[in-house]
């Protein structure tokens, strides 16, 4: 892409043209389709502008009502005249790499609002986690001047961990009957969020989950990042109950981070993390390819028991290191 074209695209995108924003995102999302100079000049431009947006990661098992909650949060932020971007992440099929992205359904009522931009993306076969380009999409939204960037996770596994790594505020959504999650928290094996939302609060069992959560957080040394004590809030996304309270807590958390200087720490962390993710991705791809190509004789020996896996790995590593 010529410098002129890039500048025009950036200019239009920065002025809020949704077609231009979208095209820009596509370039960043699929860097393999462009030369590195194009990507680089776009990213540098946006990253120099960024660093202001409040990134909110929303995690929780499938079916807890993340999308509906996000839709309500969009309304809340829009009432304060903030610009909102949503990045919604769905899993890719490990077999066909196809993806069914349906989270947008519940946010479609915002699609006519020029100050709301919703984009769906897929994990694209990356081993369990967030596709590296997703992190760069967040970076791009930040540079394009969105005030709030909401990331909706798949709701399982490594993707959620990755989202925690790039967000300022992590909202973990649970629903009544979330026994497994409560057990996991008690055992300390569940990642901690900054805010716990008990959704579907119109259900009678909601109070129980609320009490259990509050109890776990109070009785334990659980603190999330930077010494923040997690908050629990009951919400009914469908009826809109509890949303403004949630909004207040989100603000409180943001203020907490800014007061301690942690808000910018997280941005630093995110940028470093994005490099880690991309590197990991490149190296994994390389291993996967080179193993097939050059490593097959060594692998055969491992299979037959003539070489141990340690020695085999070291041999392959040394070979890779030379070609990198």
């Amino acid at each position: 892409m010529s410098k002129n074209n890039i500048d025009t695209l950036l200019y239009r995108a920065l002025n809020g043209d949704i077609r231009a924003i979208s095209k820009l995102l596509t370039i960043i999302e699929f860097p393999a389709d462009h030369d590195i100079e194009t990507i680089s000049s776009i990213m540098r431009n946006l990253m120099n502008r960024g660093g202001k947006a409040h990134i909110i990661g929303v995690t929780g098992s499938p079916g807890v009502g993340k999308s509906t909650l996000i839709s309500k949060l969009i309304s809340l932020f829009r009432d304060r005249n903030e610009r909102v971007a949503v990045l919604s992440i769905d899993p890719s099929s490990p077999f066909t790499l196809g993806s069914f992205m349906g989270n947008r359904i519940r946010m479609q009522s915002h699609s006519l609002d020029p100050n709301v931009f919703i984009r769906s993306t897929a994990t694209r076969g990356v081993t369990g986690g967030l596709s590296p380009s997703s992190v760069l999409l967040i970076e791009a939204f930040d540079g394009l001047g969105f005030d709030k960037i909401i990331i909706e996770s798949v709701g399982v596994g490594q993707t959620d961990v990755d989202i925690i790594n790039v967000s300022h505020t992590v909202i973990n959504v649970l629903m009544p009957g979330a026994g497994d999650e409560i057990q996991a928290m008690k055992a300390g094996i569940m990642e901690i969020g900054d805010i716990y939302v008990v959704n579907k609060s119109d259900k009678p069992e909601a109070d129980l989950v609320y009490r259990q959560l509050t109890e776990i957080i109070r009785s334990s040394k659980y603190k999330s990042k930077y010494g923040w004590v997690p908050k629990v809030v009951k919400v009914s996304s469908i009826m809109g109950h509890g949303i403004s309270e949630l909004g207040d807590i989100i603000d409180e958390h943001r203020k907490f981070l800014i007061d301690r200087g942690s808000f910018s720490d997280i941005i630093i962390h995110r940028r470093v993390y994005s490099v880690e993710l991309i590197l990991k991705y490149i190296i994994e791809e390389k291993i996967r390819k080179d193993l097939k190509k050059d490593g097959s004789d060594i692998l055969d020996k491992v299979v037959s028991g003539n070489i141990d896996p340690y020695t085999a790995s070291l041999t392959i590593y040394n070979k890779l290191a030379k070609t990198c």
Partner: peptide, 10 residues
Amino acid sequence: YGEWSEPILY
């Protein structure tokens, strides 16, 4: 009573 929108069921 509020309004309903379609859940995602995949």
